[in-house]
Write a protein that binds this DNA or RNA. Sequence first.
DNA 1: TGTTAGCACTCTCTACCAATGAGTGCTAAT
DNA 2: ATTAGCACTCATTGGTAGAGAGTGCTAACA
Lengths: 351, 351
Amino acid sequence: MAMEKELNDRKRAILKSIIDDYIQSAHPVGSRTIARKHELGLGSATIRNEMADLEELGYITQPHTSAGRIPSDKGYRFYVDHLMQIHNLAQEEIASIRRAMDERIEEINQLIKKVSVILSDITGYTSVVMSPQFTRAVIKSVKLVAVDEKRLLVVVLATGGIVKDKLIKLNFKVDEDTVARLNQAFNNIMANRTMDQISKTILFDVQKHIQIPDLVVMAVMDAIEDCVRKIETADIYLEGITNILNYPEFSDLIKAREILDTLREEEVLMTLVKKESSKQYFEFRIGSENEIDEMKNLSVITARYGSEDKSLGTIGVIGPTRMAYGKVVSSIKYIRELLNKEILKILGDDS
Amino acid sequence: MAMEKELNDRKRAILKSIIDDYIQSAHPVGSRTIARKHELGLGSATIRNEMADLEELGYITQPHTSAGRIPSDKGYRFYVDHLMQIHNLAQEEIASIRRAMDERIEEINQLIKKVSVILSDITGYTSVVMSPQFTRAVIKSVKLVAVDEKRLLVVVLATGGIVKDKLIKLNFKVDEDTVARLNQAFNNIMANRTMDQISKTILFDVQKHIQIPDLVVMAVMDAIEDCVRKIETADIYLEGITNILNYPEFSDLIKAREILDTLREEEVLMTLVKKESSKQYFEFRIGSENEIDEMKNLSVITARYGSEDKSLGTIGVIGPTRMAYGKVVSSIKYIRELLNKEILKILGDDS
DNA sequence: TGTTAGCACTCTCTACCAATGAGTGCTAAT
DNA sequence: ATTAGCACTCATTGGTAGAGAGTGCTAACA
């Protein structure tokens, strides 16, 4: 776009200095500070002129006449797109992540939760991680296990090696034979189908055929549907919400509480984490770019995880617009890799 | 104790007025306020004298010379033991609880979580609910289900109708026959035993006997142990932490954050929720009565739930010492009853 | 003898004001 | 084109005076 041509190298350097400084200090930064701390070989007056230009162009603003400048959302956007440096994680950070990931984790949701904790620990912001979502799961087989006279464990095995189960309680006693027949019947209907390929009418036929009370068949059917739903819907883990309170921009208790409450709403998280532009690997939503009003002065950075061709879920960080973007990006990158490896370990390498 | 005799009726009435007022207003309450708002038929000067006595006795304190009085922990303790009124829940509160509990819940941990949310909603404080804990669970039976060639679902059924399962991944392929033999063998060893009655040596014998690779047997054994551990340990649900930010006593961001962080630690919650004096049905820990330093100006109210003779877990509320004790007690009472009923529905009525 | 009105006193809180200082924009010199 | 210098702006800080709420004490009263 034209925007990129708007700024010559010197303006870019100055903008970068301002933002780097502001991210670190949280104070409006003035021309003198830039002239001193960052070695641009320019006097403060020159910088002052450039800053006036940058303000005119909308990259920075002045909270009041006699204060320094702070980046606008547009400024951050330019920073993220063109200026930001992504320095690698420090050796000790890597070590601490490895340490945290050390213990063997067998369940996928536990893994997601742990990753979420690590991400918020390492960045110091709030993390949000979505568990893998397997849309239109194909049922490989169904198993029914009689737990006791009146209870059945329904196990659904889907492609990709995913297993979900559910315990149901019946009003009737069912004998071994009945369970076996149910088992058979359900497998016949369901194997290699997705849930929406299974019409209730087929089910109805079977029901007549195997002579088992309607209620039992229905209960099992419901349980299976439930399992599939669990496979197909994603859980969201949010960690380190209280980190929000660390940042001066939220020192207003009322505001802070508002944000905390907003972040606790499942739907809000969903909109943060949903796959929007499927091309991009990383996605930045900076301040006012967020749809939700309460988040207009937060930034959200998300990335897809999963294999190259098939994204499984999203991993992300929420913080003030004045966020250490570079650091967060490198953290997410690194943790994303780890997560991918671990998921492979759990799900196995069969597709 | 002697303490009770220390206070004549008039002093009690005044103390009650002070505390009621302070709970509601959060401002130090002066003699004039009491004389006006509460109809005790006394002049402010009289009340002033009594207040001086109450302060001497340690029930109230003065933040500074020219301020009103606020209750001390000792004052709250007396209030809770002798003065507090437990008014029933308002009709509309009951309605809103019922509404929230309306949908059918099948899993016990979901139930606990929901109860926790309701409790924090209705009281406006933070709630903490412990899931049922079945100490020294007796295994009724074990079932192994071959999910696919290399994976086994281990299902443990314990008395009380509790079922837990775990999926394990083997390094070997196992055939139907092997699974059947494993199944048989484990049931022989484990049925009607608690975990600690099962020595590894017995297991070892079996292992030799049935001619199945050590690793497989071990893996299954581990999984069973894991299931039993899950049955025997309690989860804790904490809801409405951000409510903390609503109360002026925590308007200091640093303090607030400290408390939020403390409450996120599992061990802390454990000490709050552990069954201490097994006689008492309700338990109050007021301010300094708490062991943990960070909680010295919080109060915790807990109650046991479960049947008369056997307590299953704990349900409680955390708030500032200036808490609406009466309201919280009635809320917990009511919700406790609902919880008991729902648990019975889920676990069934067999012991 | 218990209760209360009155009063001097204490201490926090708020409003207001002046001084400080960081930062700017503009002008003139380099 | 750059920069030194200067007048100007405005948030922040510290200090002070006054208001207000509440107390303790004394003296009067039932």
